[in-house]
Computed example of a mutant assay.
Amino acid sequence: MMQFSNWDILHNLLMASRWTLLLSLIAFMGGGLIALALTFLRLSRRQLVVKLVKVYVELFQGTPLLMQLFIMFFGLSLIGLDVNAWTAASISLICFSSAFLTDIWRGCVESLPKGQWEAARCLGINFTQTMRHVILPQALRLAIAPTVGFSVQIVKGTALTSIIGFVELTKAGTMLNNATFQPFKVFAMVALIYFVICYPLSLASQYLEKKLNVSD
């Protein structure tokens, strides 16, 4: 058994948490860009496009993230595509987050009074202009809290990437546990780091919700 001081364990976990944060940022930004496009398509009047977006959303919402990681990492090799753990984790989390963000943002847009759409239509404003100047500024205020709240789920979801060999916070904790045989100490530190990352996001959501007076 190797000897590790408390600082050695914490230092290694903090180093690994950088990859957790980077992967979370990639998943959130990439998923957000895709979700924004899908939200526009979901609100269009083209039934075929709407149905395709629904299938995409239901596919990634209705299957476990763990299965998506397995398919992305192991399944693509069956068709000759060699995907490393970093790429598989990024693509899987981007698709996963985009599906949920699409539903969150669509719900925020559809929760606005229909009179907003009718007023814009009476003024002769097209769909894109209506979304940009009328709907999105109002929907943004409603979307902040659930969006930031879902970012916490993304951070916690990165823990599953350890299954395919991606070395992030949870994987580093497992490796340190195998070296030190001190599971309580190691995973208590892992849990604490996750809490330090996620709790400020929850506080930020509450602060922004109150500042923007979403409830009013």
Rank of each mutant, 00 (worst) to 15 (best):
3 Q>C: 08
3 Q>W: 13
4 F>A: 02
4 F>I: 02
6 N>E: 15
15 M>F: 14
21 L>E: 02
23 L>K: 05
31 G>A: 09
34 I>F: 15
36 L>Y: 15
42 R>S: 15
44 S>M: 03
47 Q>N: 12
48 L>A: 13
50 V>D: 12
52 L>N: 03
54 K>L: 08
59 L>C: 13
61 Q>H: 13
62 G>T: 00
65 L>K: 04
67 M>E: 04
73 F>Q: 00
75 G>N: 11
76 L>T: 02
78 L>E: 09
80 G>R: 12
87 T>H: 03
94 I>R: 06
95 C>H: 03
97 S>H: 03
99 A>H: 02
100 F>P: 01
101 L>Y: 12
104 I>C: 05
104 I>A: 08
106 R>K: 12
108 C>Q: 09
109 V>W: 14
111 S>V: 00
112 L>V: 07
114 K>V: 07
116 Q>H: 15
117 W>L: 01
119 A>G: 02
120 A>S: 15
122 C>F: 09
136 L>Y: 11
137 P>K: 09
138 Q>S: 01
138 Q>K: 07
139 A>E: 08
147 T>L: 08
153 Q>N: 15
153 Q>C: 11
157 G>S: 12
164 I>L: 01
166 F>W: 13
172 A>N: 14
175 M>D: 14
181 F>D: 09
184 F>G: 01
192 L>Q: 07
193 I>M: 04
198 C>I: 06
199 Y>F: 15
199 Y>L: 10
202 S>R: 12
203 L>M: 09
207 Y>M: 14
214 V>Q: 10
214 V>T: 15
